[in-house]
Design a protein around this nucleic acid. Sequence first.
DNA 1: TTCCATGCAAAGGGTTTGCACTCTC
DNA 2: GAGAGTGCAAACCCTTTGCATGGAA
Lengths: 136, 136
Amino acid sequence: MISRDVITDRLRRAGVPVTLQRVEIAQALLSHPMHLSVEQALTVVRRQAPEISRATMYNTLKLFRDKNLVRELIADPDRVIYDSNTTPHHHYYNVDTGELGDITEGDLRISGAPVLPAGAEIQEIDVIVRIRNRRA
Amino acid sequence: MISRDVITDRLRRAGVPVTLQRVEIAQALLSHPMHLSVEQALTVVRRQAPEISRATMYNTLKLFRDKNLVRELIADPDRVIYDSNTTPHHHYYNVDTGELGDITEGDLRISGAPVLPAGAEIQEIDVIVRIRNRRA
DNA sequence: TTCCATGCAAAGGGTTTGCACTCTC
DNA sequence: GAGAGTGCAAACCCTTTGCATGGAA
């Protein structure tokens, strides 16, 4: 668990106006790499700070995503997952179980320069390897 | 627009039990490559067959997806998009506008063999290039 | 005739919104 | 003190479900 001071510093450096709730959320999620749904994040954070509201959780995660403190994963069609590991890597998603995991960047490389619509620029490239349990 | 007979044949070959509604839906969606949300697909199909229900649309699209007649795209966090082009290719998604488009397979290549959990096999690999409008 | 497919409407679940209150600076 | 942030509950919207009717083989 990272200290409150270090977390506060990190928020400020990321351009996030500091509040008590944001520090609590950041401390809970950014101390270790993790994949969490909003609901799971809420459960984790509330162990330390029970008064955090659902709306604040949604707001804060989107803010953190905009400031590149977390990465938003659109892999599970039913819910968004937030990844507190922002270093480049890919993901696998088990369509049978919903399990989500990391794939090291070096294990799967992408190359090339896609043609994009005029006036647009790449924000990020998401690679999701959809896997399933081997059939009998 | 492909004839009803050809569509019926295609459904049978794909292992889809033929019904009137499935033929209507297949004819509307599979005649040309397109990206459609369920609601959009419903609008398109209902121009020819107004009695198609929303539930049938959801059921049918999932069935088609299981039979590889369409591809399910998890790119927009708010809704699933179905792609009637099942040949290998990638996509870009404009986070500002929601616009979704194709990227030719050759323009963006993936290489490598990711380590997967035991007992799992790759179903497909989705590459989504998230783009945004260039800031001023 | 039997079973699966369909239509309709209601329920479900993740996410967003409106508004009053609170905190940061 | 002004403006942004927060909490709560209701609203929203996409998707699923239950059930009665209809169609395929």
